[in-house]
Amino acid sequence: MTEFFQQLINGLALGAIYALIALGYTMVYGVLRFINFAHSDVLMLGAFAAYFLAPVVQSAGTGASVFSAIFIVVIAAAICAVIGMLIEFLAYRPLRQRPKLTVLITAIGVSLFIEFTGQHKAVFGANTKPFPKLLPESTINFGAVSMQSNDVVILLFTALLLAGLWLVIQHTRTGMAMRAVSFNEKAAVLMGVNINRIISFTFGLGSALAAVAGIFYAMRSPGIDPLMGMKPGLYAFVAAVIGGIGNLPGAALGGLLLGLLETFAGGIPGVSNYRDGIAFAILIVILLFKPAGLLGRIQPEKV
């Protein structure tokens, strides 16, 4: 039973991170209808931004404190937001009217570009780098079940971000415009929505979330490298599809589900080596019964 609770905690913390990444995928899909392959690399850039910022901020301030951590996360998120908007402006905007597959290949190109540039010696280098401590850490024990203070922070912060995102999308003008664009782009233009601005904003928001997720991911496993985004990126992508791509609560749900699934499957001897396969097998089963994901709407074919 202790093992079960321990795995539950492990899985929830991991799932929360997946959920944050999945939100970025799903938001971009909502407004542009394509899978942004470079999203997982923005996550990596977020972690590296924090890696370079932390020594500077911590030496100027009070070391690893809550204040410096928030400062680092905010700046890293801002940097990634700008990078996300730049990627959209340079690589995706010129192709807006083209088939989505064209944009997809460009996205793959961008993803490869970031990964291989990052691996170059003059940039980050291929080595795994030790990620600095952003917060004072401690272990909280409930009997034999142990929980990291970082995990508590991750879970609380993720919940906070999700609520904030929900408010932005449901209760602000920009959020309303985002929903309008994802519902019907042409009609949104006619209503006076500035599509370019909204899409830029979506990319910025999604990339900022990815940066936060990247930093959380690095806080749990303090070794970062230019390819660190690939695996969580792939899992979050699967999570977004399981939840129903384009659907925000769906992405959060899918992320949590996948985190729990990966953790519970990983803890069983003899099954742990099939872990990646199991995640996809469940995905396929879910899609066979719910072809638009758990919370997605099936759009009827229009003739």
Binding site: F264, P269, S272
Partner: peptide, 22 residues
């Protein structure tokens, strides 16, 4: 007493380590 697996390059090993601890 236990044989668990991971994939090289993984960052999260807590699931398997929890099982090993058990």
């Amino acid at each position: 007493v236990a044989e668990l697996d991971f994939n090289g390059g993984d960052k999260d090993f807590k699931a398997q380590l929890t099982a090993i601890k058990a």
